[in-house]
């Protein structure tokens, strides 16, 4: 009895989480105007894919999709390389001022990113990088959180492994490339998902630096569509499906690594 009630409770919360998404999917297949009815319909009366057609044929969705994939993919690769190198240095290299430097980085986490946006915008404008992928990729190269994640994980790698590699004459770079990186694979996957999803979903910064329609990422294009096609609910739903579906699939496939990353970030030293 108690067990049944418990699971009814769990299921109600699950429904609250899921219904908006299921309804989005269903409404994206309704004919134009079908959502403008009372009582609301939960299932399309006439199933249609016309809105997906419109998105791809008339509204340039393929281009926005490509922008999102390229920007998120490139940001992920860059972040993996840059943050893993720094994380390794903070975990395993010995040099003066290391602890102090790391503390400064951690303290900087309280500074809200919005403070930097105006000057970074001006810098990128001077460099002629506004409306290019670089405007997103370059400022996002390194992340303090990413360095922290890798460092925490790399700390647990025994020094003896590194010493053994040194005995065989490995340089610092070879140690990083051949010993550290392979052992850090789980946390690298975690960082990759965080970066990919964060970049894919990011809104404020792309809104500021990408003003040219051709350069829009999916969230910016969708927000823009919201302004122009506010009455076309079914079309908006199809656009939302195209924006969230890749990220939902990616999450379901790699959720183990994602959740592990949150738990690591949440554990205090």
């Amino acid at each position: 009895m108690k067990k049944t009630l418990h699971h009814i409770g769990l299921s109600i919360v699950a429904m609250i989480c899921l219904i908006p998404f299921l309804w989005m999917l269903s409404a994206s297949f309704m004919t134009a105007g079908e959502t403008g009815q009372f009582p609301p319909r939960f299932w399309p009366e006439h199933f249609t894919i016309e809105h997906y057609r419109t998105l791809f044929d008339r509204l340039n969705l393929a281009r926005y999709f490509l922008n999102s994939v390229l920007i998120s993919g490139a940001a992920t690769l860059i972040s993996l390389l840059v943050n893993s190198m720094a994380g390794y240095a903070f975990a395993k290299l010995k040099f003066r001022g290391k602890e102090g430097l790391f503390k400064v980085l951690m303290a900087a986490l309280v500074i809200p990113g919005q403070v930097t946006m105006l000057p970074v915008f001006l810098m990128l404008k001077e460099m002629g990088l506004i409306n290019t992928y670089w405007a997103i990729l370059i400022p996002g190269m390194a992340s303090i959180f990413g360095i922290f994640l890798i460092r925490q994980y790399a700390l647990s790698i025994p020094d003896s492994l590194i010493e053994a590699a040194r005995m065989d004459g490995a340089t610092d770079f070879q140690v990083y490339w051949k010993v550290i990186l392979p052992l850090c694979k789980p946390i690298l996957i975690t960082l990759a998902i965080f970066t990919f999803m964060g970049t894919w979903n990011d809104f404020l910064w792309p809104l500021i630096v990408l003003n040219d329609q051709e350069m829009y990422t999916l969230p910016i294009a969708l927000a823009n569509l919201m302004g122009e096609h506010v009455q076309d609910t079914e079309l908006m739903m199809a656009g939302s499906v195209m924006t969230v579906l890749p990220i939902i699939i990616l999450f379901i496939v790699l959720q183990k690594y994602y959740i592990q990353g949150i738990m690591m970030g949440g554990v205090k030293e």
Binding site: L10, V13, A14, C17, L18, I19, P20, F21, W23, M24, A27, T35, G36, Q37, F38, P40, M197, W200, N201, F203, L218, P219, L222, A223, M226, T233, M236, M237, G239, S240, V241, T243, V244, I247, I248, F251, I252, Q255, Y258, I259
Partner: peptide, 30 residues
Amino acid sequence: FRVVYFLPVVTTLVAVAVIWRYIYHPKFGL
């Protein structure tokens, strides 16, 4: 259950806003 509860976290806010604007619709909203 954990995956389902977590789903809203990973989805794009603008898409979520499209859905919720409709849930909150004064005439036709859920």
